[in-house]
């Protein structure tokens, strides 16, 4: 149980004429940085738009910062910030002018808007270039301006929709560090979406996995990475046979290429691995404590229906 709730949805659905973007989603988000993970088209952006009151849900209810989306949308929009996934910057104004204008649109008086814009642009790492027209900016700089306009009015919660999209590895690292700072240092709760699971692991306190508009899993990062202990087994050859034998012994095994991740039920798991390797006369190369990464959770849920038919696919980073 979380001490306070930042947002909560109850049976939230959104059906478009040809596709169901959200399907009875019930989820709770607490303070800190929360990752919303799912493949493209999983319903992440739809959820954010509904929470902002830009889109009406077909069914269900939701509260943001304790306010109901159906009746208090203006109050919600005053207290949150939104960084869209798509480009949203006019090219012929400077970052400073644009962010000042957006601060005023959030209700800040002009002088306060100027001060906050300068502060916020500094925090996101835009310095002298903020006086130049946005049209000449790199993707990384544009993402920073988009982030700045979402933070300029000092919201209590920000929705960041795919903030690392289109960034090179270094820009991605910097953006993730910035997101971590927003949650930890600025004290602003963050809901950040990504279709890349690995990157959220580094900055989130809590991760929600959605697929096809439905909730797959919602838990804290520590639950993701600690509660599900695994042991990684590497043998010279014959990992297929080994996996089959271990499953016979009642262990759950997930193949990762030539490696097998075996879920640890207790000491008996280690014995089972040892005995199986001996019985099959295989050469054991490695037996290592593995921490499951959140990718594995997603892989599990995606692979689950197919597990029976000896599916050794290792590329399953989630359903497309």
């Amino acid at each position: 149980m979380r001490s306070s709730t930042i947002l909560a949805t109850e049976g939230l659905s959104r059906r478009f004429p040809r596709v169901t973007a959200l399907d009875r989603l019930t989820v709770t988000v607490g303070p800190g940085v929360t990752g919303l993970v799912g493949a493209n088209g999983a319903g992440k952006s739809t959820l954010i738009k509904i929470l902002l009151g830009l889109l009406e849900p077909s069914a269900g209810t939701a509260q943001v910062l304790g306010m109901d989306i159906a009746t208090q949308a203006p109050e919600i929009r005053r207290a949150v910030g939104y960084m869209p996934e798509h480009d949203c910057l006019p090219p012929d104004v400077s970052a400073t002018e644009f962010v000042v204008h957006m601060a005023q649109m959030s209700g800040l008086p002009r002088t306060a808007a100027r001060e906050r814009a300068a502060d916020t642009l500094r925090h996101v790492g835009l310095h002298e270039e903020r006086y130049r027209s946005i049209g000449g900016y790199s993707t990384g700089m544009k993402q920073r301006v988009k982030l700045a306009q979402a933070l300029v009015h000092d919201p209590r919660l920000v929705f960041l929709d795919e903030p690392t999209n289109g960034l090179d590895p270094q820009g991605r690292d910097e953006m993730l560090a910035l997101i971590r700072r927003i949650g930890a240092e600025f004290g602003i709760s963050v809901l950040v979406t990504s279709h890349l699971l690995g990157e959220l692991e580094r900055v989130c306190d809590h991760v929600i996995v959605v697929d096809g508009g439905r909730l797959l899993r919602s838990s804290s990062i520590s639950e993701f990475t600690e509660a599900t202990q695994t042991v990684t087994v590497e043998v010279e050859e014959g990992e297929t046979v080994l996996a089959a034998r271990l499953r016979e012994l009642g262990e759950s095994v997930v193949p990762h290429g030539r490696l097998l991740a075996v879920q640890v039920r207790g000491d008996e798991t280690y014995d089972a691995v040892r005995d199986a390797v001996c019985d099959l006369d295989l050469s054991l190369i490695r037996l290592e404590q593995g921490r499951r990464r959140i990718e594995d959770v997603f892989r599990d849920s995606a692979a689950e229906p197919r597990r029976a038919d000896d599916d050794m696919a290792t590329t399953g980073r989630g359903p497309a």
């Binding site: 830009l54 929009r77 005053r78 939104y82 869209p84 949203c88 910057l89 006019p90 959030s106 306009q149």
Partner: peptide, 18 residues
């Protein structure tokens, strides 16, 4: 035109502006 073309409109509408 620019607010439509460069999709600035959602930034207004995610604020108290209707």
């Amino acid at each position: 035109a620019p607010d439509l073309r460069f999709r600035v409109l959602p930034l207004y509408l995610s604020r108290p502006v209707t």
